[in-house]
Design a protein around this nucleic acid. Structure first.
Lengths: 101, 101
DNA sequence: TTAATATATCAATATAGATTGATTAAGTTT
DNA sequence: AAACTTAATCAATCTATATTGATATATTAA
């Protein structure tokens, strides 16, 4: 009677999915991803637009980057971030499996 | 230069999306939704299958129900829960908008 | 070299939420 | 009615993480 979505070795996948969800369930981080949809932005654009203290924006960017949802490139003083679409799609697909979307 | 996903009145939508994500980003809750994919289950089936203490399962079920992701019906001693597909789809759609899935 | 700007890091605090244990409530069986 | 089963609730604790303030690092400009 085990539901097949949770059968066999899907424990690891569930954990992966929830880790992804935890990361994007923070309002500022979801906004950052949202802002990056329209192309790469430097940190100062991001924190000014989101009205966050600089260090807080930097922190959330790090969280997103550590999970490989965004990438960065340095240009002079500035650091530009871009979204990693394929990574996000990967997790969305995983989630799909569990929620039958 | 405002990215259109965050323009005008989308603040409320972002909040709605993150609330949804917070709820399903808890491993036990995602598992519950997963288990309910295969049809309605009573609480005792759920906590035994997920290997949770009864009160903890009950707690997570309440969180899911309060957010209208599941519904319940009482039958004698037992309470049966079912998934609310349209509700979940609604939030998935919302998320879609922000993440460009 | 000094000053200014952009970003990152670190320690401390605050807060939200998961878990546990004990209890209550409701329905069922004997 | 008494005993039992299923589920919900409540208070207490534990844990994770968001936020803040201060500081450090790197790059550019004067």
């Amino acid at each position: 009677m085990k539901p097949n979505c949770c059968k066999n070795g899907s424990g690891k996948n569930i954990k992966q999915a929830t880790e992804f969800l935890k990361i994007i369930s923070e309002e500022n981080r979801l906004k950052i991803l949202c802002v990056l949809q329209s192309g790469e932005k430097c940190v100062c654009e991001i924190w000014k637009y989101l009205k966050l203290p600089q260090n807080l924006a930097s922190h959330h960017l790090k969280v997103l980057k550590d999970f490989d949802l965004i990438s960065s490139r340095k240009d002079g003083l500035k650091v530009f971030y871009t979204i990693n679409r394929q990574s996000i799609k990967k997790y969305a697909k995983l989630l799909n499996k569990f929620l039958n979307l």
